[in-house]
C-alpha cells in the first residue's frame, strides 16, 4: 500500500506546517474513558487523535523477586492487535511491540509511582503482581504516549481485589474490590520527533514515517518540581545536543498539560 509521501511531510514542515494543521508543539486531542472493563481491576480506553489504545490492569498474587522480597511486581506487555494497522501481523511480538512495552514499563517503573512496598502480603512469599496489558486498536502514531497515559489512568483508577488465606496459600477474591491501588505520582510520557531541523510534538503516523529521529521522555511531578524519569531515543538518525536540551524543556511543559487530563480522570 502506498503511504503518504515522506517528501510532502518534510516540505510542509520546512514551511512551518503539519499535515493536520497543528502547531509544532501541539498534542492531538486526548479523550479517556476509565473502568469500562469489569473483568479488569483497572482499565482505560484512550484516544489520541486517531490513535486508540485500551489498557487493562489485572492483579494476582505471586512470589516476589529475590532481591526485592517485600515489594510487588510490575509486568507490562503490549500487543499490536492486527486490526490496528494493515502492517501488523499475527505471531510473536516484534521489535516495535517489545520497544513499546519496555518504554512504557520504564516510564512507570522508574517514576516509582506505584507504592510497591504496600503491595507486599507476606515478605519473600507473596506479593501483588500488577499486570499492565496494552492493546493497540488503531495505530495513527505515537503509541508510546497514548499507551503510557492509558496505563497510568488505568493504574490510578484501579481497585485492588481482596484475598483469603487458606493454610499456606493465598487466593484472590475478584468479587470484592475496595481499596485503590496505592499511587504516589502520575508519570507522563511525551514524544517528539525531529524532521529536518524542526522538533514536532506527538507525531502522527505519517510524521513518524518521515522522521529523522525520535525522543521519548518520561516526566513526573513529585509535588515540588517536575523531574525526568526515563528517556528513549528512536529513529535511524541522530539528534544534536541542543535539540535534546530543547526536547527536555518541551517534555516538562507538555507533561504538565497531559498530567492534568489524567489527574481529572483520577478524581
Amino acid at each position: 500500500m502506498i503511504e503518504m509521501d515522506d517528501l510532502l511531510i518534510r516540505k510542509l514542515v520546512k514551511r512551518g506546517k503539519r499535515l493536520d494543521g497543528r502547531n509544532f508543539d501541539a498534542y492531538r486531542e486526548v479523550s479517556i474513558e476509565t473502568n469500562f472493563i469489569n473483568s479488569a481491576e483497572g482499565s482505560a480506553r484512550l484516544r489520541l487523535g486517531n490513535t486508540e489504545v485500551v489498557v487493562g490492569v489485572k492483579m494476582g498474587i505471586g512470589t516476589p523477586y529475590p532481591d526485592t522480597p517485600d515489594e510487588g511486581v510490575l509486568v507490562v506487555n503490549a500487543e499490536l492487535v492486527p486490526l490496528a494497522s494493515p502492517e501488523f501481523e499475527k505471531g510473536p511480538p516484534g521489535e516495535e511491540s517489545i520497544e513499546l512495552a519496555r518504554v512504557v514499563d520504564r516510564a512507570i517503573r522508574e517514576s516509582k509511582c506505584i507504592a510497591f512496598d504496600k503491595l507486599c502480603i507476606e515478605p519473600g512469599k507473596a506479593v501483588w503482581m500488577v499486570n499492565v496489558d496494552i492493546d493497540v486498536l488503531d495505530d495513527d502514531g505515537n503509541l508510546i504516549d497514548a499507551s503510557c497515559m492509558a496505563a497510568v489512568a488505568a493504574l490510578a483508577t484501579a481497585k485492588m481485589p481482596e484475598y483469603e488465606k487458606n493454610d499456606d496459600s493465598y487466593k484472590v477474591n475478584f468479587d470484592k474490590k475496595s481499596e485503590s491501588l496505592p499511587m504516589k505520582c502520575l508519570p507522563i510520557s511525551t514524544t517528539f520527533v525531529r524532521i529536518g531541523d524542526a522538533i514536532l510534538a506527538d507525531p502522527a503516523l505519517d510524521e513518524l514515517n518521515a522522521m529523522d529521529a525520535r525522543l521519548t521522555i518520561g516526566t513526573l511531578d513529585d509535588g515540588k518540581e517536575i523531574k525526568l524519569c526515563s528517556m528513549q531515543k528512536g529513529g535511524s538518525n541522530g539528534l544534536a545536543v541542543g535539540q535534546v536540551e530543547q526536547i527536555i524543556d518541551l517534555a516538562i511543559e507538555k507533561g504538565k498539560e497531559l498530567r492534568k487530563i489524567v489527574k481529572a480522570e483520577k478524581e
Binding site: R106, S111, L228
Partner: peptide, 26 residues
C-alpha cells in the same frame, strides 16, 4: 556520531531534574 556531532543512542532510567539530565548527557 563525532563527525556530525549527533546523538544516535539516548536512553535513561531514574529520576533527575532537567538540569541534571543535561549535565549527565554532557
Amino acid at each position: 556520531y563525532p563527525k556530525r556531532k549527533e546523538i544516535t543512542l539516548l536512553q535513561m532510567d531514574g529520576i533527575v531534574t532537567p538540569g541534571e539530565a543535561k549535565e549527565i548527557l554532557h
